[in-house]
Structure formats: structure tokens, C-alpha cells
Amino acid sequence: MFDTLREIHISDIDIRDERYRISPESENISFLSHSIKKMGLMNPPVVRPMDDGKFILISGFNRIKALQQNNESKVRVRSTDTHIDDYHCLLFAVATLAFKRPLTQVELIISIKRLSRYLDREDMTKISSAVFNTQLAQEFIDDLMNIGSLPSPALKLIHTGQLSLKSAKKLVRLDLDAISFFLDIFSKIRASASVQLELIQNILETSLREGVHPKSLFQELNLPNPLDGETVDMAIRTHHFRTLVFEQRYPVLSRTRQAVQDKIASVKLPGTIKLIPPENFESRKYSISFTVKNHEEFEKNIQHLTDALENMTLREILDS
């Protein structure tokens, strides 16, 4: 089926036809171009001949692009026979990559989405080990199908790690406006998977509580969205945004925490001594800790604490 090795003109390949492409386009293929220049093309791309004498690629999109960059005009390819159908070409494209290295999440999603035109999820589960090089459960396939239906730039964000699969799974259940709103947020921040989930949950819960759509939450609450401006770097922007969202979800808790932190700061304990309020203020137990390198430091800290006995703000904090 794929055993014909032949040389063809690169210009005869319709590189715009990406029906078998399952990997996102690599932004930088200079290493690959350089490697091909130095060592030649190690694995020939696989093409499917079409009735008009042209070819479409089944695998080797980046290699062809690299060859074009190297100004090559011809390439040795493995060609399928003319009778092969779309389904088998797609299976081949997926399996070739999956048995070379584990598919990325985005490749898995694209593959499943494309194969779903030919297979139901039950059949996909059955062939998964032979095609994906791993056993996929039906429920997981459902999840990937749903995630695959998210609008752009969901897959791009998953590819760059800005949107986890778990977060994407949460978004699937929302309406299109809300999905777009969240995708816009995640395109502007970089948060861990757990923080992403926290943000989604806090925004949704605040919106439900306030009876407004998530996309109009900030306007309704008269809040400047820290993601709107061209502010600072991504990490700081993410932190500001997370704080703002938490403050809306837990306004009294946030204000209380801030007030206590302000009071603790006003006590002016030295940096070596930490006064930590109780978690969520549910218990009354504050903890005080300090670190010492020697006895002299120990004495100094004790003296600081003794001085603090006279501090009325500290008394207020501890006796409130």
C-alpha cells in the first residue's frame, strides 16, 4: 500500500491540503532545514497521488516546508497506491506519528476529531492501541471530541500549555460567549492547571451568584479588567487577575485577610519573625515563628517579641 518509493517535484505537492495533518505547524523549522542540508532527508514523506497528477501529504509537512526553505525542487517520497481511501490515509498519518513518539494532547484531539468522521467512539476505542499506541477509554474519547469542538484558539492554547485539558473540559459545558470569554482570558495569562480551574470556578460562581453572564461580570461589577491593558509581564498580570477574581468571589474573606495583613505589617516585627493568621480565620490560632542561626539571634528575637507585648495593635489582632 505504501511501498512505492519515487522522486517527485515539490511543486506537485498541494501543501495547502492539510486533511491528514494532525500536528500543529511548527513555527521554527530552521533546525530541521539545517539537518536536511547536512545529513539529507532520513525519512521520506508519505504522499497520496490524486487524479489530477498532483499529490497531497499524509506525513512530512514540516520536512516539505524545510526542503522548500532549502530551495530544493525535488523530493523522494513514499507514495500510496491510487485506490487508497481517506480513512486509511488518516489512520496511517496518526499511526506513523504515534509509534514514533507519544502524541501530544492537541495531536490526539485533532486525530480523534478527524477519525470521528469514519468511526464511532466504540470502534475508536477498539482500534486505539493499534493506531494511537495507547488504549483510550470511551469517556476520554468523548472528552477529546468535545474539546476538539471548542472554537479557536482553544487548541492553540492547549498546545502552548495555557489551557489544560481539565480546564478545556470545563469550558465545553458553557455557551459560546462564555467559552470565547475564557479563551480570551487564557490567551492573556499563563497559569498552572489548578489555577486555571480556580479561575474558571470563581468566575462562574461569582457570575451565577450575581445573576450576570461571565462575559459581562467585570462591567456589571464596575471593575477594570487587568487583562484589558498592555500591562507588565504575563506572570504579574496573571497574579493581578487571579487576585481580582478571588476578591469578587470571596469579598469579605479578602477584605478581612487584607485588613489583618495590614495590621500585622503595622506591628513592624523584624523580618525574621513571622506572624501567620489562622487559615481562613476559622480557628483562633495564630502562629508565630522565627528562625535563628545562633543563640545571639535567638536572644534578639525574644527581645523583639518581648517589646511587641506592649504593642496595642498586636493585642488587637490576637484578641479580636
Binding site: E205, T206, L208, R209, Y250, P251, V252, L253, T256, N280, F281, E282, S283
Partner: peptide
């Protein structure tokens, strides 16, 4: 229902409770 969207924190018995000042 918006019952669960109040300011709940995890209590010392691991149940969710309204923030104590509330």
C-alpha cells in the same frame, strides 16, 4: 440554586461553612 456560591471556607471538620464573621 446559588446556595453553594456564598463565601464558604473549609471548616475544621472539613465541612464547608460560611466564613466565620458572616
Amino acid at each position: 440554586s446559588t446556595l453553594c456560591y456564598g463565601e464558604f471556607i473549609q471548616g475544621l471538620d472539613n465541612k464547608m461553612r460560611y466564613f466565620k464573621p458572616l
